[in-house]
Each structure stands twice: as structure tokens, then as C-alpha cells.
């Protein structure tokens, strides 16, 4: 997650001080990725070192302000234009867990899948309830351009929906994996192969395809 570019985007709307940036970052993203003030100041000092922000005096209450520079604006513009990097996807604990569960002795992989599906659907229900509230807020809000509240509501809705689509993808992948496993074990039974307690059966389908995994 790019705190750096998030802060630049907020600073483009005018000079701000550290804890103000933190508050605005969180109200945009609904505190989904909480920031601490320390992270904000560390990032600001790196941005300053790189010439993307400069100290911008103090506000009336004496808070030291930061302002974006032309270099910072250019960096921000490029960030919006550039697709997010997908070359090194973050480690996914669930994918690793299922990969390890395949053929693991004493592990009921369908039970692993169902336990996860339960938790995933539960999270989706919670997100969806929050989303229903966010939708009401957005629909009662006004113009996005000059209405900070409406902009925050819309941004929060987008983030919530991203969480919903992500959990949905996980649920679909679980369904898919389960039906694949069921089908393969049915095929194996019909072929009168030994009981499925054997370690890592049916490797022809799955493991070699993953051989090119990066380490």
C-alpha cells in the first residue's frame, strides 16, 4: 500500500500538517488501513528528502505544514497513470494453507475449505451491512467536487466494495477448489486406486504446474 502517494494526493489539495494527513487518509479509506502518526512523519521526511514536499510554514494553531512541490505533483500524476504493480503479489496465507493441505496426512481439506468459506461469507455479510449504510450516505450526499463529506463517503464505499469483491473472489476460489477436489477424488475412486491417505496423490494435475513458483 502506498502511503507515500496517498499523502501526496491529499497534499495536492493544499498544505496540511501530519496528524491532519493521518485523519484525512483514514476518513477516505474508512480506517481500513490504519496509519500511525509516526508512519506519516517518516513518510513526510522521505518525501522532503526526495524533493516532493517542502515545509510550508505553520497554521494559526502553530502546526507545521507541508506543501507539495512540482516534483511531487509529477510523481503523483505518474502514479495515477501507472497500473499497480502485479509482478510480486503479496503472500496469501489461504493459498499457502490449501497448497499445504493437499495430501497432508490427517487433514480434511474439505473441512478446511468449509471453515474458511464460513469465515469469508461472514466477513462479506459484515462488509455488506456497512456498505448498505455507506450507500445511504452516498445517495443522500451532494456533489463530490466541493463536498468533503460526500467525497469521503464515496471513497469509503469504493474501498468497502473492493473488500467485498476480494472476499467474493476468495469464496469463489474456495467453491472451485472444493468441486475440483471432489471430482478428482470421485475419479480416483472409480479407478479403484488405493485409499486417499497416500501423500500427495494426483500430482499430475496440480503440483508441476506450480513448479515455476518464485521463491
Amino acid at each position: 500500500m502506498s502511503i507515500r502517494h496517498g499523502l501526496l494526493a491529499l497534499l495536492e489539495q493544499g498544505p496540511r500538517y501530519g496528524s491532519q494527513l493521518r485523519t484525512e487518509f483514514e476518513s477516505r479509506t474508512g480506517a481500513t488501513w490504519p496509519l500511525n502518526v509516526g508512519q506519516v512523519y517518516t513518510t513526510l521526511s522521505r518525501l522532503e528528502r526526495d524533493g516532493m514536499v517542502v515545509p510550508g510554514g505553520d497554521d494559526d494553531a502553530g502546526h507545521p505544514l507541508y506543501a507539495i512541490t512540482d516534483a511531487g505533483r509529477e510523481e503523483l500524476r505518474q502514479w495515477f497513470e501507472r497500473p499497480v504493480d502485479r509482478t510480486s503479489p503479496p503472500r496469501d496465507e489461504l493459498a499457502i494453507k490449501l497448497a499445504m493441505a493437499v495430501g497432508a496426512p490427517g487433514v480434511d481439506i474439505q473441512a478446511v475449505i468449509q471453515a474458511q468459506r464460513h469465515a469469508t461469507l461472514k466477513a462479506m455479510q459484515d462488509y455488506t451491512r456497512l456498505k448498505a449504510q455507506a450507500l445511504i450516505a452516498v445517495e443522500s450526499g451532494g456533489d463530490l467536487q466541493d463536498n468533503a463529506r460526500g467525497r469521503d463517503d464515496m471513497a469509503w464505499l469504493l474501498v468497502l466494495e473492493q473488500l467485498i469483491f476480494q472476499t467474493e473472489a476468495e469464496a469463489r476460489w474456495l467453491d472451485h477448489s472444493e468441486s475440483r477436489l471432489v471430482r478428482l477424488s470421485a475419479t480416483a475412486k472409480r479407478g479403484a486406486t488405493p485409499p486417499p491417505a497416500e501423500p500427495a496423490p494426483r500430482t499430475a494435475e496440480s503440483a508441476p504446474a506450480r513448479a515455476s513458483r518464485r521463491r
Binding site: Q114, R117, H118, T120, L121, K122, M124, Q125, D126, Y127, T128, A132, I164, F165, T167, E168, A171, R172
Partner: peptide, 25 residues
Amino acid sequence: PRFAAWADRVVFLRDGSVVDETIRT
């Protein structure tokens, strides 16, 4: 799943039996 998530409870059926159910919070 995305539409099921609007429900208060999600009931999972397998082979004609209820195998699991989420509970509302």
C-alpha cells in the same frame, strides 16, 4: 456469495443436508 452476503444468515447445503450456517452479528 456477494448477493448471499445481504442475508442475515447464510445456510450451506451439501448433499441434501445443512452442513454449516453463519450467524448474524
